[in-house]
């Protein structure tokens, strides 16, 4: 019996497949389990390699840093696509090395992908080339639910200007205005903070809520 059990174990570990047909269920389960065990043995680094301003200045394109507060995970992102939608602002899709994306409209988060429990789309208020939210009012998010559905989260927001503040990001100081968006709805409250650098026309730094599953994201535009 013990011989059979160890033989069975050996076969389980050897479960494999090849071809265009989808792998059998057991093969998928075991490869997934193997990945989990590998992650447990050598967990992926959650901290980011430190960067210097000299390295950032040498970059060709813009760079963004994101931190998921709830998971303690962080990543650097590059620009995947940009789209000018005129009066509705400019949408920038930022991508991580492990295939997650954030879509920001004038620096305000409107969609996420590849994170799980993503924001499918959002209704927000921005105007033209002005970075950051342009006013209060309704903030509607469609969140991916567990049954392939889009669940609607309706918040009502106020926007206040907390005045000028200086932000330092990797050895460089930026003059910004601090905008605070306070929202409530669906049995809770959210505070989104934006540090807007008007001279460069960007949201230099922000802390934005990305829905019930993802929680707060912290974003810093490192370059340019």
């Amino acid at each position: 019996m013990r011989v059979l059990a160890s033989l069975a174990l050996a076969v389980l570990l050897a479960a494999c497949s090849s071809g265009t047909e989808e792998a059998p269920l057991q093969v998928q389960v075991f490869s997934n389990t193997r990945d989990l065990i590998r992650q447990r043995i050598s967990p992926a680094e959650t901290g980011l390699p430190p960067v210097t301003r000299a390295q950032l200045d040498a970059l060709d394109g813009p760079a963004l840093e994101v931190t998921l507060e709830t998971r303690g995970a962080a990543a650097y992102l590059y620009v995947n696509a940009e789209r000018d939608e005129g009066a509705a602002g400019q949408v920038t899709v930022w991508r991580t090395g492990d295939n997650s994306t954030l879509a920001l409209r004038n620096g305000v988060l409107v969609a996420t992908r590849g994170l799980g429990g993503d924001i499918l789309s959002s209704e927000i208020r921005v105007s033209g080339g002005q970075p950051g939210p342009s006013g209060g009012g309704a903030h509607v998010m469609l969140i991916r639910g567990g049954d392939e559905e889009a669940r609607r989260l309706v918040l009502v927001c106020d926007l206040e200007d907390l005045g000028a503040e200086t932000v330092e990001i990797v050895e460089r100081r930026y003059p910004t205005r601090h905008l605070r968006q306070s929202c409530s709805g669906s049995g809770g409250e959210v505070v989104n903070d934006y540090w807007v650098e008007e001279r460069a026309g960007v949201v230099r730094q922000s802390r934005q809520w990305a829905g019930p599953h993802l929680g707060y994201l912290r974003l810093r535009q490192l370059a340019p």
């Binding site: 069975a8 076969v11 389980l12 050897a14 479960a15 494999c16 497949s17 090849s18 071809g19 265009t20 047909e21 792998a23 059998p24 269920l25 057991q26 093969v27």
Partner: peptide
Amino acid sequence: DFSWSVAPY
């Protein structure tokens, strides 16, 4: 097209 698999049951 050819596919094969070895899997426990």
